[in-house]
Protein backbone atom coordinates (compact mmCIF):
# COMPACT_ATOMS: atom_id res chain seq x y z
CA UNK A 1 0.00 0.00 0.00
CA UNK A 2 2.77 2.41 0.99
CA UNK A 3 4.45 1.75 -2.39
CA UNK A 4 1.31 2.90 -4.22
CA UNK A 5 0.99 5.93 -1.97
CA UNK A 6 4.63 6.85 -2.59
CA UNK A 7 4.17 6.44 -6.35
CA UNK A 8 1.04 8.58 -6.55
CA UNK A 9 2.23 11.25 -4.15
CA UNK A 10 5.39 11.80 -6.17
CA UNK A 11 3.49 11.77 -9.48
CA UNK A 12 0.82 14.20 -8.29
CA UNK A 13 3.42 16.48 -6.74
CA UNK A 14 5.34 16.66 -10.04
CA UNK A 15 2.15 17.16 -12.09
CA UNK A 16 0.22 19.71 -10.09
CA UNK A 17 2.13 21.16 -7.16
CA UNK A 18 5.38 21.57 -9.03
CA UNK A 19 4.50 21.30 -12.70
CA UNK A 20 7.97 20.97 -14.16
CA UNK A 21 7.21 22.95 -17.30
CA UNK A 22 5.65 25.95 -15.59
CA UNK A 23 7.30 26.02 -12.18
CA UNK A 24 10.77 25.08 -13.36
CA UNK A 25 10.76 25.96 -17.04
CA UNK A 26 11.95 22.42 -17.92
CA UNK A 27 11.09 21.40 -21.46
CA UNK A 28 9.22 24.66 -22.00
CA UNK A 29 10.61 25.21 -25.50
CA UNK A 30 9.53 21.72 -26.57
CA UNK A 31 6.13 22.24 -24.98
CA UNK A 32 5.62 25.42 -27.01
CA UNK A 33 6.76 23.81 -30.23
CA UNK A 34 4.61 20.72 -29.67
CA UNK A 35 1.62 22.90 -28.81
CA UNK A 36 2.02 24.59 -32.18
CA UNK A 37 1.79 21.19 -33.90
CA UNK A 38 -0.95 19.35 -31.99
CA UNK A 39 -0.89 16.32 -34.30
CA UNK A 40 2.48 15.33 -32.85
CA UNK A 41 1.32 15.72 -29.27
CA UNK A 42 0.21 12.13 -28.65
CA UNK A 43 3.37 10.49 -29.96
CA UNK A 44 5.64 13.07 -28.40
CA UNK A 45 3.91 12.84 -25.02
CA UNK A 46 4.14 9.05 -25.00
CA UNK A 47 7.83 9.19 -25.85
CA UNK A 48 8.60 11.84 -23.23
CA UNK A 49 6.75 9.80 -20.58
CA UNK A 50 8.57 6.63 -21.63
CA UNK A 51 12.04 8.19 -21.60
CA UNK A 52 11.51 10.08 -18.35
CA UNK A 53 10.18 7.00 -16.55
CA UNK A 54 12.84 4.57 -17.79
CA UNK A 55 15.71 7.01 -17.26
CA UNK A 56 14.44 7.98 -13.82
CA UNK A 57 14.15 4.35 -12.74
CA UNK A 58 17.53 3.28 -14.13
CA UNK A 59 19.34 6.26 -12.67
CA UNK A 60 17.73 5.60 -9.29
CA UNK A 61 18.78 1.95 -9.40
CA UNK A 62 22.35 2.88 -10.34
CA UNK A 63 22.45 5.45 -7.57
CA UNK A 64 21.56 2.76 -5.06
CA UNK A 65 24.94 1.11 -5.72
CA UNK A 66 27.18 1.97 -2.73
CA UNK A 67 30.02 3.41 -4.87
CA UNK A 68 27.75 6.13 -6.19
CA UNK A 69 26.41 7.18 -2.81
CA UNK A 70 29.44 9.36 -2.16
CA UNK A 71 29.78 10.53 -5.76
CA UNK A 72 29.73 14.26 -6.54
CA UNK A 73 27.74 16.26 -9.09
CA UNK A 74 30.21 15.72 -11.93
CA UNK A 75 29.92 11.96 -11.68
CA UNK A 76 26.14 12.33 -11.56
CA UNK A 77 26.18 14.21 -14.87
CA UNK A 78 28.34 11.62 -16.57
CA UNK A 79 26.28 8.72 -15.23
CA UNK A 80 22.88 10.19 -16.04
CA UNK A 81 23.97 11.30 -19.50
CA UNK A 82 25.33 7.86 -20.31
CA UNK A 83 22.14 6.21 -19.05
CA UNK A 84 20.00 8.48 -21.19
CA UNK A 85 22.17 7.93 -24.27
CA UNK A 86 22.07 4.14 -23.81
CA UNK A 87 18.28 4.13 -23.28
CA UNK A 88 17.83 6.24 -26.41
CA UNK A 89 20.12 4.11 -28.56
CA UNK A 90 18.46 0.86 -27.46
CA UNK A 91 15.03 2.36 -28.15
CA UNK A 92 16.10 3.61 -31.56
CA UNK A 93 17.53 0.21 -32.45
CA UNK A 94 14.31 -1.47 -31.31
CA UNK A 95 12.27 0.93 -33.46
CA UNK A 96 14.49 0.20 -36.46
CA UNK A 97 14.24 -3.58 -35.92
CA UNK A 98 10.48 -3.48 -35.44
CA UNK A 99 9.90 -1.40 -38.55
CA UNK A 100 12.32 -3.34 -40.74
CA UNK A 101 9.74 -5.47 -42.55
CA UNK A 102 6.70 -3.36 -41.80
CA UNK A 103 6.51 -1.50 -45.11
CA UNK A 104 7.12 1.93 -43.60
CA UNK A 105 8.80 4.40 -45.90
CA UNK A 106 12.32 5.52 -45.03
CA UNK A 107 11.07 9.09 -44.55
CA UNK A 108 8.50 7.97 -42.01
CA UNK A 109 11.10 5.93 -40.14
CA UNK A 110 13.45 8.91 -40.08
CA UNK A 111 10.68 11.14 -38.80
CA UNK A 112 9.86 8.71 -36.00
CA UNK A 113 13.51 8.43 -35.00
CA UNK A 114 13.89 12.20 -35.08
CA UNK A 115 10.86 12.47 -32.82
CA UNK A 116 12.41 9.92 -30.47
CA UNK A 117 15.64 11.91 -30.39
CA UNK A 118 13.92 15.20 -29.61
CA UNK A 119 11.79 13.68 -26.87
CA UNK A 120 14.69 11.78 -25.28
CA UNK A 121 17.20 14.63 -25.20
CA UNK A 122 14.95 17.07 -23.51
CA UNK A 123 15.47 18.98 -20.28
CA UNK A 124 12.25 17.66 -18.77
CA UNK A 125 13.48 14.07 -19.21
CA UNK A 126 17.00 14.81 -18.06
CA UNK A 127 15.88 16.82 -15.03
CA UNK A 128 13.98 13.95 -13.40
CA UNK A 129 17.05 11.90 -12.27
CA UNK A 130 18.59 15.03 -10.76
CA UNK A 131 15.37 15.83 -8.90
CA UNK A 132 15.23 12.22 -7.64
CA UNK A 133 18.78 12.50 -6.42
CA UNK A 134 18.25 15.87 -4.77
CA UNK A 135 14.97 14.99 -3.02
CA UNK A 136 16.17 11.43 -2.25
CA UNK A 137 13.14 9.74 -3.77
CA UNK A 138 12.61 6.02 -3.27
CA UNK A 139 12.25 3.66 -6.24
CA UNK A 140 8.40 3.90 -6.42
CA UNK A 141 8.67 7.65 -6.06
CA UNK A 142 11.25 7.77 -8.84
CA UNK A 143 8.86 5.90 -11.15
CA UNK A 144 6.05 8.22 -10.09
CA UNK A 145 8.23 11.25 -10.80
CA UNK A 146 9.09 9.89 -14.26
CA UNK A 147 5.46 9.31 -15.20
CA UNK A 148 4.48 12.57 -13.53
CA UNK A 149 6.98 14.48 -15.67
CA UNK A 150 5.41 13.05 -18.83
CA UNK A 151 1.88 13.86 -17.68
CA UNK A 152 2.97 17.35 -16.59
CA UNK A 153 4.38 17.87 -20.07
CA UNK A 154 1.08 16.76 -21.67
CA UNK A 155 -0.98 19.08 -19.44
CA UNK A 156 1.37 21.99 -20.10
CA UNK A 157 1.31 21.41 -23.84
CA UNK A 158 -2.48 21.22 -23.94
CA UNK A 159 -2.85 24.38 -21.87
CA UNK A 160 -0.39 26.22 -24.12
CA UNK A 161 -2.18 24.94 -27.22
CA UNK A 162 -5.53 26.24 -25.96
CA UNK A 163 -3.97 29.60 -25.21
CA UNK A 164 -2.38 29.72 -28.65
CA UNK A 165 -5.77 29.15 -30.27
CA UNK A 166 -7.24 32.06 -28.34
CA UNK A 167 -4.28 34.29 -29.12
CA UNK A 168 -4.41 33.38 -32.80
CA UNK A 169 -8.07 34.25 -33.15
CA UNK A 170 -7.88 37.48 -31.15
CA UNK A 171 -7.50 40.49 -33.41
CA UNK A 172 -7.30 42.96 -30.54
CA UNK A 173 -3.78 41.89 -29.63
CA UNK A 174 -1.31 44.52 -30.90
CA UNK A 175 0.71 43.38 -33.88
CA UNK A 176 4.03 43.51 -32.03
CA UNK A 177 2.69 41.12 -29.38
CA UNK A 178 1.17 38.59 -31.77
CA UNK A 179 2.74 35.15 -32.04
CA UNK A 180 5.72 34.37 -29.83
CA UNK A 181 5.58 37.38 -27.44
CA UNK A 182 1.92 36.81 -26.59
CA UNK A 183 2.61 33.11 -26.02
CA UNK A 184 5.47 33.96 -23.65
CA UNK A 185 3.17 36.28 -21.69
CA UNK A 186 0.46 33.63 -21.57
CA UNK A 187 2.92 31.00 -20.29
CA UNK A 188 4.13 33.50 -17.69
CA UNK A 189 0.59 33.82 -16.34
CA UNK A 190 0.15 30.05 -16.25
CA UNK A 191 3.55 29.64 -14.60
CA UNK A 192 2.55 32.23 -12.02
CA UNK A 193 -0.55 30.18 -11.18
CA UNK A 194 1.43 26.94 -10.82
CA UNK A 195 4.10 28.66 -8.75
CA UNK A 196 1.29 29.83 -6.50
CA UNK A 197 0.28 26.18 -5.95
CA UNK A 198 3.76 25.40 -4.66
CA UNK A 199 3.34 27.92 -1.83
CA UNK A 200 6.11 30.30 -2.87
CA UNK A 201 5.61 33.99 -2.23
CA UNK A 202 5.02 35.53 -5.63
CA UNK A 203 5.59 39.21 -4.99
CA UNK A 204 7.90 41.04 -2.60
Amino acid sequence: MSVIVQFFSAALYIIFVQNLVFSGGYGSSEAIRTAARPRQLALFAVMVTYFSTVTSLLCKLIWLIPIFKTADATIAIVTFTLVLVVVYLITALLILKTLKGSGWKQEEKDRLLRQAGVSAFNTIVFAVPFINQRVAYTVPEAIGAGIGAGVAFIIATMLIHEGMKKIESNNEIPNCFKGTPAVFMYIAILAMAFTGFSGKSLFF
Binding site: F22, S23, G24, G25, F184, M185, I187, A188, I189, A191, M192, T195, K200, S201, L202, F203, F204
Partner: peptide, 12 residues
Protein backbone atom coordinates in the same frame (compact mmCIF):
# COMPACT_ATOMS: atom_id res chain seq x y z
CA UNK B 1 10.11 42.57 -7.27
CA UNK B 2 11.46 39.23 -6.13
CA UNK B 3 8.87 37.51 -8.29
CA UNK B 4 11.01 38.28 -11.33
CA UNK B 5 13.56 35.74 -10.14
CA UNK B 6 10.97 32.97 -10.60
CA UNK B 7 10.62 31.29 -14.00
CA UNK B 8 7.41 33.19 -14.74
CA UNK B 9 9.37 36.43 -14.31
CA UNK B 10 11.78 35.12 -16.92
CA UNK B 11 8.90 34.44 -19.32
CA UNK B 12 7.56 37.97 -18.82
Amino acid sequence: ATALTNPFGGFI
